[in-house]
């Protein structure tokens, strides 16, 4: 039994196809990363899976209910948190929790219990009367997640929940996501940060509404990237990039901090090939090694191929 099952889901806005015939399955309790550039169709897909946007064709079964036929039942079984942390800044922490609890129809002991839980995960015990607008981003984000799952849904959709939050808060947030997953909740998450994608059990990459890669992080690195990746440290990476791009033994180049990542193909023989070339152009090579590819390498490779 899958938690989410998507079958040939398509969404068209006029002539523009935002989501183009995608299908995938998500296991219960899985952390499922849904990645893609801005405008790739991530949010549109999430909105359809949440039952607030009707698909043009295809269907998805979320928590056992069809998003086309029973969107209201879908809504009862999911939580949703957007990048905008939809909390009311002019309400106190407690009033926000009360509001979302009320919207989800919670009451009595269960409500008190859930309110405590939300305060607990957001580290806001004893600070119930604080204005939400005065909270730091990381705390707000945890409070937003807490209120999004206050009704204990089996599935939670997080649409870029970590954008605009500092790295430490992001790491703490991922711990929270892991906790949810360990408790059997399916976490469907989109993110811009590829290093975060490494924490996912399964990743799906979409581009221009089409599914282009699928698997766990390890599978993605081995199945979709046959070439080796070299990391080059040199005195003038920008100039080096220009020179190397035109070489027939290199498929793609990209800048990582001060270094260059080179995606080399079968025409590549050894390091000398590159070193010689750069020295002749007066570029000092201080390091050149084969590395384990990052997800970013994989995606750059995949998106390059699409072009």
């Amino acid at each position: 039994m899958y938690s989410i099952e998507v079958n040939n889901l398509t969404k068209k806005f006029g002539n523009f196809t935002s989501v183009d015939n995608i299908s995938f399955k998500v296991n219960e309790g899985e952390i499922f990363g849904f990645l893609g550039a801005n405008g790739a169709g991530k949010s549109t897909t999430i909105r359809m899976l949440c039952g607030i946007l009707e698909p043009t064709s295809g269907d998805a079964v979320v928590g056992g209910y069809s998003v086309v036929k029973e969107p209201d039942n879908v809504k009862l079984n999911i939580g949703y948190m957007s990048q905008r942390f939809s909390l009311y800044n002019d309400l106190t922490v407690e009033e926000n929790i009360n509001f979302f609890g009320g919207v989800y129809g919670l009451e009595g002991n269960l409500f008190d219990e859930r309110k405590n839980w939300v305060l607990d995960i957001a580290n806001l015990k004893g600070k119930e009367k604080l204005m939400t607008g005065s909270l730091p981003g990381g705390i707000k984000q945890r409070l937003a997640l807490g209120t999004a799952v206050i009704h204990q849904p089996k599935i939670v959709f997080l649409d870029e929940p970590t954008s605009g939050v500092d790295p430490l808060s992001r790491r703490n947030f991922w711990e929270l996501i892991n906790d949810l997953s360990e408790n059997g909740i399916t976490v469907f998450i989109t993110t811009h940060y590829l290093e975060e994608a490494e924490f996912c059990n399964k990743i799906l990459l979409i581009n221009a509404g089409k599914l282009i890669a699928e698997g766990n992080p390890q599978e993605l690195k081995t199945n979709y990237l046959k070439n080796d990746i070299l990391e080059l440290e040199c005195s003038n990476p920008v100039k080096a990039m220009k020179i190397l791009e035109s070489q027939n033994f290199i498929d793609a180049t990209s800048i990582f901090g001060n270094n260059l990542h080179l995606n080399v193909n079968k025409n590549y023989s050894n390091k000398n090939q590159i070193e010689k070339l750069l020295i002749s152009e007066n570029i000092q090579v201080t390091g050149l090694d084969k590395i384990v590819p990052t997800l970013e390498d994989v995606f750059i490779h995949l998106l390059d191929k699409k072009k």
Partner: peptide
């Protein structure tokens, strides 16, 4: 404008 309407829409209200 704040996007809070979306949060309300995904609830079963």
């Amino acid at each position: 404008e704040l996007g809070t309407i979306e949060q309300i829409n995904v609830s079963s209200i």
